[in-house]
């Protein structure tokens, strides 16, 4: 998988940016929560592109945000 660079991102439309980020986020999210990975990734993609890049670079931050997403999901399903 080719590395995700800023120049690659800025050359893409906002929509394409999210797609690129999602493809990279998804396998990482799957490690954290395989069952909810599709939904968690969907929630994380609602954040700004710059924030998603931070998540991709920091496993700790990604885990924190994924856990928050799970909490949101659980609240939503009540």
């Amino acid at each position: 998988q080719e590395p995700l660079t800023i120049s690659l991102l800025v050359s893409a439309s906002p929509h394409e940016q999210k797609q690129m980020l999602g493809v990279r986020l998804f396998p990482l999210v799957q490690i954290i929560d395989k069952k909810l990975a599709e939904k968690i990734t969907g929630i994380l993609l609602e954040f700004d592109t710059s924030e998603i890049i931070y998540m991709l670079e920091s496993p700790e931050l990604l885990r924190t945000m994924a856990n928050k997403a799970v909490t949101l999901l659980q609240g939503h399903q009540v």
């Binding site: 797609q19 999602g22 986020l25 990734t41 609602e46 939503h76």
Partner: peptide
């Protein structure tokens, strides 16, 4: 109650639709 379609699910290989207002 009112069930809005949230969250959007991301599936690898499927073009991301996301929220309408992105």
């Amino acid at each position: 109650g009112s069930s809005i379609n949230w969250p959007p699910e991301f599936h690898p290989g499927v073009p991301w639709k996301g929220l309408q207002n992105i």
